[in-house]
């Protein structure tokens, strides 16, 4: 489904702030893989997702989604393959527009937009049913401006938007990190349900090692711009946080240095 070959990216090359974010990264996701991604600060987790999304062009390497080489495709064209949820709950929705309008824009991702009515009546009914499944009381608030919702509600709506049109790859970038623990658990549970129901290929970055172990069928750990640990199936199910810390120490020769990850 996703095939990344020898991907490299250096920011601010040739200056004092030079930072190599991706160092010849290789990654191959099978159809239906639910991969959790962990790693210390600056390991390249978000850089990897931004590279796949096409926020900027990589220095070298190729990215293929479902057999299509998207390496040189602009961000808005690639969007047809991708569903994205960001860490910042403000980033995934248009605050000054209604919930229904946000969903309608997402429902047309990858299609040619025309001069026809932007939110049809039948759609509203469909959105109502979908919002009801979130169990956040949003089903009767289709006309509410998204900016009036809480962070958790906005993340849930963003998740719905990302999956409304089945994406080839769902990318979640620490999408529960900015939420309180209770809301985070709820959004994560929702994520699991949507991914399982639709059998979505998913790449989920998380700073929480327990979440990384509990969710998905495969886990990768990144360090210094490449993948240092890659476990799946039965082997992944048996992992403990201590195992992960040991693996990290072995791969990097250092203690795991992400305060947030240590605490969780």
């Amino acid at each position: 489904m996703l095939k990344i070959t020898n991907l490299k990216k250096t920011f601010n090359a040739g200056t004092i702030n030079e930072k190599t974010a991706l160092e010849g990264l290789n990654l191959h996701l099978k159809d239906g893989d639910f991969v959790t991604v962990i790693g210390g600060n600056g390991a390249g987790k978000s850089t990897l997702q931004n590279a796949i999304a096409g926020v900027w062009k990589p220095d070298c390497g190729t990215i293929e989604i479902d057999g299509v080489d998207v390496t040189n495709m602009p961000e808005h064209k690639r969007a047809q393959f991708l569903g994205r949820v960001f860490q910042d709950p403000m980033k995934g929705t248009a605050p000054d527009m209604e919930i229904a309008e946000n969903l309608a824009i997402a429902a047309r991702r990858g299609t040619k937009r025309k001069l026809i009515w932007g939110v049809r009546k039948a759609e509203r009914e469909e959105y109502k049913k979908l919002l009801a499944t979130l169990d956040l009381g949003l089903e009767d608030r289709l006309s509410t401006k998204v900016g009036l919702l809480s962070g958790g509600q906005r993340q849930a709506v963003t998740l719905l938007m990302a999956t409304l049109r089945r994406p080839k790859l769902l990318m979640l970038d620490e999408h529960t990190a900015a939420l309180d623990p209770k809301t985070a658990a709820k959004v994560l549970e929702l994520t699991d349900r949507i991914v399982t129901e639709n059998k979505l290929t998913t790449l989920m970055i998380t700073h929480n090692m327990n979440d990384a172990i509990a969710h998905g069928n495969r886990l990768i750990m990144m360090y210094d711009g490449h993948v240092v640990v890659d476990v799946e199936g039965e082997e992944k199910k048996k992992l403990t946080v201590q195992d992960l810390l040991n693996m990290f120490a072995q791969a990097s020769g250092k203690e795991f240095a992400n305060d947030r990850a240590m605490l969780s």
């Binding site: 969007a79 047809q80 980033k91 995934g92 946000n102």
Partner: peptide
């Protein structure tokens, strides 16, 4: 409208 309201979201939705 969404372009002015949230360009990041718009690009992510293929706009």
């Amino acid at each position: 409208k969404s372009t002015g309201d949230n360009p990041d979201m718009s690009r992510a939705q293929g706009v």
